[in-house]
Design a protein around this nucleic acid. Structure first.
Lengths: 202, 202
DNA sequence: CGTCGCATTGATATCGCTCAAATCCGGTGG
DNA sequence: CCACCGGATTTGAGCGATATCAATGCGACG
């Protein structure tokens, strides 16, 4: 089981925190299954959860991979039953928020409702930026787009959270391709890096 | 200018409709620019609007393309200024909803707030499914994933809205690659098509 | 010290992109 | 009515960037 040191839960609205129940799931364990009554909305403290459906042929259709610091099954709030399966792809630590209480809070706490709307809107923007990134053909373009959309400050600096392999997955590349691309971009003075920080050079 | 026949506005919450003002923009016209004060949230009746930023190098970075039946700049509700540019990529008919009034409605009308949250959540789900789709390597996998996530009914049927070229863009492929892939999938009895309808074969 | 996973680089295979060309179709104007 | 045009559709040939397979070094951790 992972032991989350720096908890990435700053994104959780204050009103929601008292409702949290910590859940730990081992790799391969189910968090919920398609058709189950919706009982909770989740937040990933550490690890990764895969949301998917199974096609008639038996193949798994991935809908989403929720990593550290991400909510998942937020859309389930509006539904009676989960419409997909959630399986931990690694040992993971989650926060579970009872769906009924969250729904009630949305009706009574206007501040929380606003926060929740803002949270969804931000996630939507990020998801769309990622979409356009994955539509780019070249690995170098994706790296630069990533820095330009996610980077902070004038240099578009990004502090790498996990490993380079994680970044590769985020960019839709193999880790080998990303290593090569980063090496080339550094050689060509397009990007620089200091420790776990990556940024654009002017 | 397009003349929308079947208006795809079923997705618009009832409380929002009285606020709508119809706007028509010609291809290449701006809907709003980055840095402008947020005045409206939009819905595409017909046509297409491209959301983008300009990088320091002068290149245009596309963030999102909103087509028929989609809202755009929903996330701007939480912000004071637009954080990207919106340009019509074709002659388009839009609905504009004044941001102030929508914000007010979110505070006073709990039903509308719930609808708006559901709307954002649905868009988020779709965006995430698309993300997983674009991460797939093979064109055939993307087509099948598209049908399985967006298709309706037992056959996972999809009525193609625009041209096959448009679908290719949605799937992150060139139109040539998609034509070839569709031809092969039809030959191999994986998918079938009737007119503008595409579906999975058992 | 052995194991495991990340980081890094090399060699080869491959799918989709690019360029190209032919056909089809709807609209437009003479 | 027909010639013309632009865009979508369809198929072909070759190239190239990334995936894949492979090997090595490295650091953490029991």
């Amino acid at each position: 089981m992972p032991n989350p040191v720096s908890r990435p839960n700053a994104a959780i609205p204050a009103a929601l925190r008292p409702l949290a129940r910590e859940v730990r799931v081992a790799k391969g364990e189910w968090v919920f299954r398609k058709g189950e009554a919706v009982h909770s909305v989740f937040f990933v403290l550490d690890g990764e959860v895969r949301l998917s459906r199974f096609s008639k042929g038996g193949g798994e259709i991935a809908l989403h991979r929720a990593g550290r610091g991400e909510f998942f099954a937020e859309a389930a709030l509006g539904a009676a039953r989960y419409h997909c399966n959630a399986i931990a792809s690694r040992d993971s630590a989650l926060l579970a928020f009872p769906a009924g209480k969250v729904r009630a809070l949305l009706g009574t706490d206007a501040t929380f409702a606003r926060e929740w709307i803002a949270l969804l809107a931000r996630q939507l923007q990020r998801a769309r930026a990622r979409l356009e990134r994955l539509a780019l053909k070249f690995a170098a373009e994706r790296v630069v787009h990533y820095l330009q959309t996610e980077g902070a400050g004038d240099r578009h600096e990004v502090h790498l959270q996990g490993t380079v392999k994680d970044l590769a997955r985020e960019l839709g590349l193999t880790h080998e391709a990303l290593y090569r691309t980063l090496a080339r971009l550094k050689r060509e003075r397009v990007v620089g890096h200091e420790g776990a920080s990556l940024f654009l050079l002017p």
